[in-house]
Nucleic acid binder design. Sequence first.
DNA 1: GTCTATAGGCAGATAGAC
DNA 2: GTCTATCTGCCTATAGAC
Lengths: 211, 211
Amino acid sequence: MSRGFSKPFGILDGMIVAAAKPAEQTDTREAILTIAERLVQARGFNGFSYADVAAELGITKAALHYHFAGKAELGEALISRYGARFADALAAIEAAHESAFDRIVAYTRIYASVLDQQRMCLCGMLAAEYHTLPEGMRRAVVEFFNANQAWLRRLLEDGQNAGTIRFAGSPEDAAQMIVGTLEGAMLVARPYADTSRFQRVVDQLLRELRP
Amino acid sequence: MSRGFSKPFGILDGMIVAAAKPAEQTDTREAILTIAERLVQARGFNGFSYADVAAELGITKAALHYHFAGKAELGEALISRYGARFADALAAIEAAHESAFDRIVAYTRIYASVLDQQRMCLCGMLAAEYHTLPEGMRRAVVEFFNANQAWLRRLLEDGQNAGTIRFAGSPEDAAQMIVGTLEGAMLVARPYADTSRFQRVVDQLLRELRP
DNA sequence: GTCTATAGGCAGATAGAC
DNA sequence: GTCTATCTGCCTATAGAC
């Protein structure tokens, strides 16, 4: 948590809390990103506009272009900040939990807290819209998933060695299945606006991972 | 397969084949739906326009409005046709396979064939865009998932009784996990344009379901 | 940094001729 | 059924004043 970002996924000292809007924004650029992030997670990159952000922030569209040359640049910045915060959250999980299983439980709570805010995972949303995204954003989305799955794979490897987690197949395959299951459970839970629906899938998943 | 729809998901006589474009379209309305369906699955409901469909079909936007009053009506018709074809595909699976496990394998191949065409599941895509959809489309998306999961739940119940499939928890929960896993695996595989990535997750899932 | 003003394009949609 | 023509509105983006 050294980068000074606001607490992104509601993770604080290993506890899951409702993500609060920062009382004061460090600067306009961050405020833009925070608003745009929520809009993209809720409505998609093709479902929000500069006008939406400008209206909510109380400045004009023209001012947005001062901070981000175009929508593509804004999009890349969104993924970059999101990825950095996600990495922070993963580091916090490692600091707070010892066993691989406990870490996975905490990992699933990141997703749950995002869903609680009526949001989709940013990069899950962008994966759906992938074929409409500018090239720079595409690269960033792939990098996010790579980093995410690499972290999971290492966790699974360690857990397998320590006997604190159980799974069939390779750690790589299991990592992909975990990410896929969580992203998909979020996706399908959205139309139902029902967190418990997501949680039941997670419980099912955790039951299979419990050593 | 009694409705006379074109073979939607590449399922024919229990075999998975590349989904071929129908040689001749029954009428303009169907042609519009076929083109729009592909565009929505590839780019999202907010990522295509009447102009895209009109250009590809070689007619004008105004002609589209004769067949579908507005984008919302077109969207509802898309989900309705997709859902009917999906139901046909499920019926075909039941006709072609006896055991619950074999049926699940065939079920996963529906998703694989969609992904092979660089598409997302139509309703998976719409679930991502859910908060931007008109009310009628939202209802239709939920109904699709309800029907889909009800079919899976019955299959799991039957398989559990016959001992041809294995899972922990309730059939309902397992059904939700299967749908979630498949939708999520499709979603995450998109940025990688790699079917084998999807297939590895499916193999992982099937390994756990094998009796 | 933020504004006003505006460009230029595309969106969904309609009127009315054929 | 399909066309031409057109409307209104929103989109991203830019120029230039303050």
